[in-house]
Nucleic acid binder design. Sequence first.
RNA 1: GGAGAGGUGCCCGAGUGGUUAAAGGGGACGGACUGUAAAUCCGUUGGCUAUGCCUACGCUGGUUCGAAACCAGCCCUCUCCA
Length: 443
Amino acid sequence: MRDPRPKPPCLIAQGLIAQISISYPMTKLKSDFLNILSERGFLHQCSDMEALDKEAAAGKLIAYVGYDCTAPSLHVGSLISIMMLAWLQKTGGKPIVLMGGGTTRVGDPSGKDETRQLRTVAEIDANKDAMKQVFSRFLQFGSGKTEAIMVDNAEWLAPLNYIDFLRDVGRHFSVNRMLTMDSAKMRLEREQELSFIEFNYMLLQAYDYVELSRRYGCNLQMGGSDQWGNIVTGIDLGRRMGVKDHLLALTCPLLTTASGAKMGKTASGAVWLNEAQLSAYDYWQYWRNTEDADVIRFMKLFTMMPTDEIQQYEGVAGAEINHAKQVLATHATALVHGRMAASNAADTARQMFEQGARTQGLPTVEIEGEKLEKGLGLLEALVKAGLAATNSEARRHIVAGGIRLNGEQVHNDKSVLNMSHIQTDGALLLSLGKKKHVLLKPV
RNA sequence: GGAGAGGUGCCCGAGUGGUUAAAGGGGACGGACUGUAAAUCCGUUGGCUAUGCCUACGCUGGUUCGAAACCAGCCCUCUCCA
């Protein structure tokens, strides 16, 4: 689509985050919402900063973020947008959590190298149900003015009729323009396939925005910077389809660590928010291992710590930065798993790493007592504990000197575990490297 | 529909009949050093009941003592043409 409007003055080039604070010094922002977001480093691009500030100050923001149901849990990558919704609610706006029950059936090509396999509807629905729970930790749901609501775009997308949709919505889209958008351009440049179904994703997301605006008066869509194209397309579509509200777009930067790695990926996969996918202890560990250079930035983004408190940690080093990481981990974990779980994780880690003492708080795996009495091969035990994917991998870890049993390095890959290895706490401890520990408990 | 190029391990990418479980790089993991950080250095990186066996270079067959490599058919991607 052509955009007939002159570009809003605040529309900054991608990647030039710093410009926001230059062109919009904090004193000029009237709303708490934008002041907080700006101060904490959430802002990347905005379609009309002045209008957004005005609406926010007047308490008239109704904003949505869409989440596709591609996995049984959200992960750290989605956390930043959840935080934006939480801040919105705290500052008098109304958050809408949009579950992509419909759009996930199509698949978003944005930022993806290649087509992902289509998911079954049953899988999508199961994912959706599992994903929901985490939002209640961050948002107050209800029907009040600032209470959050959750909707599923399958509600209006699933019943769409193809011909009607083409005539009502499709005619507003220019393929010429769509091909120039980042999501499509990347595939085209890399000579990778972009299937028609994915190509349609943009239309559906644009239509979502229109529908949410009609149904709930939604006037702001937020998301990661990779969503910019989809979001402004929605704004455009809204104008063409006669939406009266002034629709707005706001994106946050796509986060990488100071050394350039994508946020939220570890060896064992994504950093999931649901306990079922990743224990609170491991979640705490993820944040504990933050790089020095990221601590302050992450405190601002992933905790609700007041900024003056965060400032105390600015520029610290050595033992102090280590302490700061613990504070970060505990605050971040408390948001997702609750205060209890967070402080338990912190205690467990303190005992394990600082005192070298094992505790019951470590991830625990149950094994058959009978098997242990007969003698359980170390390789099998490591696989059972989840410390190795296969016997061969377990063997390699042992040979490399990465495995410890009750704190003692093991060198023999033929070692056998039995009841004599059980310690007074009724379990035995297997460790991989310095950081991964699992208690094996006979049942 | 026609012509050409291509499909190799988690990713990129070399290999065009025989020590090829497949060079090199990236990533990841382990070790050393540290602060549970970063950087650096070293090692590992298909599976198994393991001096051997099985699986693997898009799929299916074929040629051969022997195939990722040669042949045929099919599938998929890209480029140009219609």
